[in-house]
Simulated assay, not measured.
Amino acid sequence: MTLQADAARAANTRKQLLEWFTGDQGENTMRVLMNERPLTAEQLRIAEQTRRATRPHTYQPGEVAREQVDISATARRLADIARVGTQFADLFLAEASMCDLVEQAGPSMPDQPLREDDPISPYGLVYFQKPLADIGTHLLPIEAMLWYPLPPQRPASIEEEGICILPWVSTETVARLTDQREIVGRVPKLYCTASVIWPYGNKWGQMIKGAPPPEGATPEHYQQLLAAFWALCKQDNVADQENGPGIKRGDSRRFANAGIRRPDQPVRIVSLQRRHTTRDPGTTGDSREVEWKHQWWVNGYWRNTYYSSIDSHRQQYIPGHWKGPEDKPVLGGEKVIAVKAPRKRPST
């Protein structure tokens, strides 16, 4: 599809995701992510009996039922927070080449503690034109990622400040893998597979009460990919950002009725910087002239760079580039073997 069509899909995706966090579906979604599915009346009766038998001296009648009420209230509050995060989210569309770079550079990005100013926007939703592979089974490609800050009025179980990350996959894919074809058409086209709560100051994997990811995947993978996307977007020598097509008046009205803030906000298209340079972007401006006799390819890499604006070191990606004069031979080029037919021996 074209960038314009995918930008329109990204805008519609935000409206669809709001449906996940509205009413009973929002609570049920968060209960699933919390791995706390509602108990039936029979399951509740058995749970109370089991609790009474295993803790006869401390058991209080109806305590399991009260715990279920607390879980339900927590799930509703988390759904409310996610809905607000979706309503305020700035929209981004990662163009296919940018998705390739995130997949290539993300896994090699060194770990660093999360800062409040690391995200490119406090609230954001990025739609990947080319879905990112999950690190485990590779059966649930990541179609989009939503992030938002945790508000002060959050559940008591979440003590630290930070952000919440929700990765989204194709509902069609989930239905096929789980043999639940009935969900297609009944829920939004994207399906939330996990939640990761990432406190400020913590590195990857240092989370609090995040929902378990799909089998074979890791919460660190989501954090690392999103952190790499944020860092790459901030580098003018790596990424270009431009506004996508304007939101149509009819769509803007639908978005406003759904509760979306700034319903006419265009989608920001993030694409790979294509300006060519032969200068090593990792140089420090040394004016010494060196007469190179070859040119060679330097693979992209991350470098810990000091930023005076924030008085801190952050990871900066140095894109792959050619080094050396363009008119010199390539060092380490492919070896070509010429195969010739054997000469015929002269007859005697």
Score class of each variant (00 low, 15 high):
residue 325 P to S: 09
residue 190 L to W: 02
residue 45 R to C: 10
residue 47 A to N: 06
residue 296 W to R: 09
residue 16 Q to C: 04
residue 268 R to K: 14
residue 220 E to R: 12
residue 319 P to C: 01
residue 145 M to C: 05
residue 42 E to I: 07
residue 99 C to S: 14
residue 309 S to M: 09
residue 110 P to R: 10
residue 209 K to P: 00
residue 177 L to A: 04
residue 117 D to V: 07
residue 154 R to K: 15
residue 43 Q to C: 09
residue 86 T to P: 04
residue 277 T to M: 02
residue 48 E to G: 01
residue 51 R to D: 10
residue 15 K to Q: 12
residue 328 K to P: 08
residue 89 A to P: 01
residue 243 N to I: 06
residue 244 G to F: 04
residue 137 T to I: 11
residue 124 G to F: 05
residue 306 Y to G: 06
residue 224 Q to Y: 08
residue 83 R to D: 00
residue 276 H to W: 07
residue 227 A to Y: 10
residue 46 I to L: 12
residue 271 S to E: 04
residue 338 A to R: 13
residue 109 M to R: 15
residue 63 E to D: 10
residue 15 K to F: 03
residue 36 E to G: 00
residue 111 D to C: 05
residue 254 R to A: 15
residue 291 E to M: 11
residue 52 R to K: 14
residue 70 D to L: 12
residue 260 I to A: 06
residue 268 R to L: 08
residue 234 K to T: 11
residue 135 I to C: 15
residue 170 S to C: 07
residue 72 S to P: 03
residue 307 Y to H: 13
residue 260 I to T: 04
residue 23 G to Y: 00
residue 288 R to M: 11
residue 212 P to E: 11
residue 211 A to Q: 02
residue 272 L to M: 04
residue 115 R to W: 05
residue 183 I to Y: 01
residue 196 V to K: 00
residue 28 N to T: 04
residue 184 V to I: 15
residue 281 P to N: 08
residue 260 I to G: 07
residue 70 D to K: 14
residue 43 Q to K: 11
residue 279 R to Y: 07
residue 92 F to D: 05
residue 259 G to N: 03
residue 125 L to Q: 08
residue 271 S to V: 02
residue 178 T to N: 10
residue 163 I to S: 00
residue 180 Q to M: 14
residue 107 P to S: 05
residue 292 W to C: 13
residue 223 Q to G: 03
residue 22 T to F: 01
residue 221 H to L: 08
residue 276 H to G: 06
residue 70 D to S: 10
residue 124 G to H: 05
residue 5 A to L: 12
residue 250 G to A: 14
residue 250 G to Y: 01
residue 294 H to I: 11
residue 18 L to V: 02
residue 111 D to S: 14
residue 252 S to C: 15
residue 317 Y to M: 02
residue 76 R to M: 11
residue 20 W to S: 01
residue 145 M to R: 08
residue 293 K to L: 15
residue 337 I to M: 07
residue 53 A to T: 04
residue 107 P to D: 07
residue 110 P to E: 03
residue 209 K to M: 10
residue 161 E to V: 05
residue 20 W to K: 00
residue 121 S to R: 10
residue 236 D to H: 11
residue 195 S to M: 12
residue 338 A to S: 06
residue 33 L to V: 05
residue 233 C to E: 06
residue 31 R to D: 01
residue 130 K to Y: 06
residue 55 R to N: 07
residue 23 G to P: 04
residue 12 N to S: 15
residue 217 A to T: 14
residue 253 R to H: 11
residue 246 G to E: 13
residue 249 R to Y: 05
residue 53 A to G: 06
residue 139 L to K: 14
residue 67 E to T: 09
residue 331 L to M: 10
residue 76 R to A: 03
residue 271 S to W: 00
residue 98 M to R: 07
residue 47 A to R: 08
residue 311 D to M: 09
residue 311 D to Q: 15
residue 203 K to T: 13
residue 262 R to S: 13
residue 66 R to W: 00
residue 3 L to R: 04
residue 53 A to I: 03
residue 301 Y to V: 04
residue 194 A to R: 01
residue 89 A to Q: 03
residue 328 K to T: 15
residue 329 P to I: 07
residue 213 P to E: 01
